[in-house]
């Protein structure tokens, strides 16, 4: 199923991009329910306004959960060894997210060959929202 062969990975190889969105208010309500994160800043515009914000904004972990898939769709969910990302800007309602991933290192841990993959989520206007990296087992 892998489009880039896990066994012959090279630094600089790009994984297939993944697109998500546009983010809707309904999506934020569903993510609140599915995740159990009921922070009103994401689902209650009255709360957002009373906090001095112009509108609700997306759960960072919604974009994060989407971003993990740029790696897991390609490698399979059980090959993921670690995944981390920083939230560098807020994802707003109506943002459309593109997830990109590039191999930055291939290394050995014991008998396992692993690849480190730099990942990014980018909104439609080029604004980076998440920047991180994943480690996957190749062989």
């Amino acid at each position: 199923m892998s489009l880039v062969d896990l066994k012959s990975l090279q630094v600089g190889d790009a994984l297939p991009e993944l697109e998500f969105g546009p983010i809707t208010r309904a999506m934020l309500a569903l993510y609140a329910g599915a995740s159990g994160d009921h922070n009103p800043a994401h689902i209650d515009i009255d709360f957002a306004k009373s906090s001095g914000l112009p509108d609700v904004f997306a759960h960072g972990m919604l974009s994060y959960g989407v971003l993990t898939q740029v790696v897991t769709r390609w490698a399979g969910p059980d090959r993921l060894r670690d995944f981390g990302a920083r939230f560098v800007s807020i994802t707003q309602v109506h943002d459309k997210i593109t997830c990109r991933a590039v191999v930055t290192d291939v290394f050995q841990v014991g008998h396992e060959t692993r690849a480190r993959i730099g990942v990014k989520a980018i909104a439609q206007d080029g604004r980076e929202t998440l920047i991180g990296d994943a480690v996957v087992a190749c062989a």
Binding site: N39, A41, S51, F83, A85
Partner: peptide, 17 residues
Amino acid sequence: DYRYLLHGDERYFYAGP
């Protein structure tokens, strides 16, 4: 305080499914 709260970063280390 959810009025001012943001998420900085998050990292997972997977040891088993």
